[in-house]
Amino acid sequence: MNIAATLPASHDQPRTLPGDLAIWFFIFAELLVFGVFFLAYAFARARNVELFDASQLQLDRISGAINTALLISSSYFVVRAVDRIRHGASHACAGWLVAAMTLGGAFLVLKLTEFAGKFAAGITMSTNTFFMFYIGLGFFHFMHVVLGMIILGWVAHKAWRGGYSAANHAGVETGASYWHMVDLVWIVLFPLIYVMH
């Protein structure tokens, strides 16, 4: 590893938002939706503390924590992937992306197990306001993980085939930015719905 590689590439040249500006419009819109939902949850909770606290006890906090760790780690792997492509290492980039997707897949499996348990207990979005948020927001986020994995898969495929280079890798950054957003949203969602009471 030479000296340049240990420094973030951004120090060499001032950069604008990573990736394509188009993805940032999408990210901003998604953050807005999630943000409004989070605040809606918080205000709805303030008006019905007992119900929310009692319902929250039925959640599996450990499962949520493991999922947080999975997403954070996959986000870190994506950072590694971007770093590799900046050095022109296409296959290493694709490898890190596949690793990130694997963790994303584990997240989905764990989340599905969690949901299956709730559905088996007869809990739906119409059970009460807490579960409306838990299932609705959880499912909404779940779909984002799926979409994020599709994007990463696409980027990984292109990277493997040598579609990106050290000079031209905006596509990798675009996918990475979306994936970090999915991670960021979960970082707020987990403590809000699973932990705080």
Partner: peptide
């Protein structure tokens, strides 16, 4: 229709002016 639409409808249609 189920009452959760009050949340989903409000949040998303609040974005429709954008």
């Amino acid at each position: 229709t189920p009452e959760y639409w009050q949340w989903w409808g409000s949040v998303f249609s609040a974005m429709e002016p954008i």
